[in-house]
């Protein structure tokens, strides 16, 4: 409702001098003057252009600085290809895991009333407030050579940190809340009456979930998975701590960007970065489309 521009009051206006070409609409009391409004809009656009759009544009400009051939050459490097494959693998493991968790946690938290519910909800959000570097560090402290379980892992010839399992664990940690925090508020809003009706009509619990609950939350689920995936593929800090940076083996795309950059291969670094930026753009577009088309089906929590 408040979206609609406030209507001007029907007050008798003193005759305006002819110099004003457009028939000026009288300013409503809840509006700023045109000058103020234009200044504010210009400042906002300027600020966003400077701090948000310029960095995005720079990625593509720098990547194509030496022409398309140089740009494409980066991707024929086997180390780059290995980094892309590892990133896809890590996302393919961690996103489904967090999706299953998100659905299970949302079912328990949103559909039932139990003691300690708000504590559990807070704990689900916890990884968001932990620094990425600390998220990586905890796994080094747990599984590293000097960690709590380090000696035991070594005795059984298992390697977690500085290997792929550590990267997956760190990624799962940092992307942990994404799906759950999309689903919980929405499913709480929707209540339990539709599921109860399905059960009364004789559907099994699982069937109720598949045919009643899931269709109700599918767009929010997709939204959460989208954000979860973007973060899983782009995570840098946490993965950097547990990866060990072995080229071709434990290097994800963001880590590969860092290595190329530190070797002064700027075109290569920005070329890999442009793929990640492309992923970010696709995510943003998909997210915006979901918000515009299915805004109501996403619930009210648009806060990340």
């Amino acid at each position: 409702m408040s979206d609609a521009p406030a209507r001007p009051r029907a007050e008798p206006q003193p005759a305006r001098p002819r110099a004003v070409t457009r028939p000026a609409r009288p300013r409503a009391v809840t509006e700023e003057t045109t000058l103020t409004r234009r200044l504010l809009i210009a400042t906002a656009i300027g600020f966003l252009a400077l701090f948000v759009m310029l960095p995005l544009a720079a990625v593509f400009v720098e990547a194509l600085r030496r022409g398309l051939d140089h740009y494409l050459a980066t991707f024929s490097d086997p180390d780059t290809q290995a980094a892309i494959r590892l990133t896809l693998l890590v996302a393919a493991i961690s996103v489904p895991l967090n999706m299953v968790f998100g659905v299970a946690a949302a079912w328990a938290i949103a559909k039932f009333e139990f003691v300690g519910k708000s504590l559990l909800t807070t704990l689900v959000d916890l990884p968001f407030s932990v620094s990425p570097v600390v998220s990586g560090l905890v796994f080094v402290l747990l599984f590293g050579a000097h960690g709590l379980l380090g000696p035991w892992l070594e005795a059984h010839d298992l390697q977690i940190v500085f290997a792929v399992p550590g990267i997956v664990l760190a990624t799962v940690f940092v992307t942990f809340p994404f799906v759950a925090r999309e689903l919980i508020p929405l499913m709480q809003e929707q209540g339990t009456s539709e599921e109860e009706a399905a059960l009364t009509l004789g559907a099994s619990g699982f069937r109720t979930f598949l045919t009643v609950t899931l269709p109700n939350v599918k767009w929010a689920l997709l939204y959460g998975v989208l954000l979860c995936n973007a973060r899983a593929m782009g995570e840098f800090g946490a993965v950097s701590v547990v990866s060990g940076h072995v080229r071709g083996l434990t290097n994800t795309m963001p880590l590969h960007v860092e290595i190329l950059y530190n070797e002064y291969d700027f075109v290569g670094a920005f070329a890999v970065a442009s793929l990640l930026a492309g992923l970010a753009l696709v995510t943003l577009v998909a997210k915006s489309v979901l918000e515009w088309r299915f805004g109501d089906a996403l619930g009210q929590s648009r806060l990340h």
Partner: peptide, 19 residues
């Protein structure tokens, strides 16, 4: 512009860093 506000969430931090 509204959609662009979320870019810092979506853009991987390493990409933002070098850019």
């Amino acid at each position: 512009l509204d959609a662009m506000v979320d870019l810092p969430f979506a853009l991987p931090t390493a990409v933002a860093g070098i850019s």
